[in-house]
């Protein structure tokens, strides 16, 4: 699992690098933006996954939350790229033009409280328990 996470992290970073390179290439704006969508979503989720990963412990709630976050980020940015720019005639959804709404709500709002709640919910089991703290303190005393 760790190797997969690291591979995702490195791949996402490379995609972001390619996206920046596209700015120096004539006609690169289109595909560069898509590289950036994939890179930004990938690096965000894989960085969190790297921190949340614990050898031998899996938590489906965290996995689902991270996958959903990745999907949400990709969906939000993608809709903003794909939907046509209708100017003043653009439909307003939840207070904003639909393209802006897709970014604000799918990228900004949806993961905003979900991830911190998942973090708190799974903290004792997955992140840090009493036995973990004792183990670390023993390691410190030995050192």
């Amino acid at each position: 699992m760790l190797r997969f996470i690291l591979a995702a992290l490195v791949t996402s970073t490379l995609l972001i690098a390619v996206a920046y390179a596209s700015a120096f290439v004539v006609g690169g704006a289109g595909w560069g933006a898509w590289c950036m969508v994939a890179g930004v979503a990938g690096i965000s989720v894989s960085t969190i996954a790297l921190g949340a990963h614990r050898h031998g412990r899996r938590n489906p709630i965290v996995t689902v939350a991270l996958l959903a976050t990745g999907v949400s980020l990709v969906a939000g940015f993608s809709l903003a790229l794909l939907l046509p720019d209708a100017g003043p005639a653009e439909a307003v959804v939840l207070g904003f033009p639909v393209r802006a709404s897709s970014v604000i709500y799918l990228v900004g709002v949806l993961p905003l409280f979900v991830l911190p709640l998942v973090y708190a919910w799974t903290f004792d089991e997955l992140t840090l328990g009493d036995e973990d703290i004792e183990r670390v303190r023993r390691a410190g005393r030995k050192g």
């Binding site: 965000s44 989720v45 960085t47 969190i48 921190g51 949340a52 976050t69 980020l73 990228v107 900004g108 709002v109 949806l110 993961p111 905003l112 991830l115 911190p116 998942v118 973090y119 992140t127």
Partner: peptide, 9 residues
């Protein structure tokens, strides 16, 4: 939307 949980984990 992701950085507070990112910082935590």
């Amino acid at each position: 939307s992701v950085t507070t949980a990112m910082g935590g984990w």
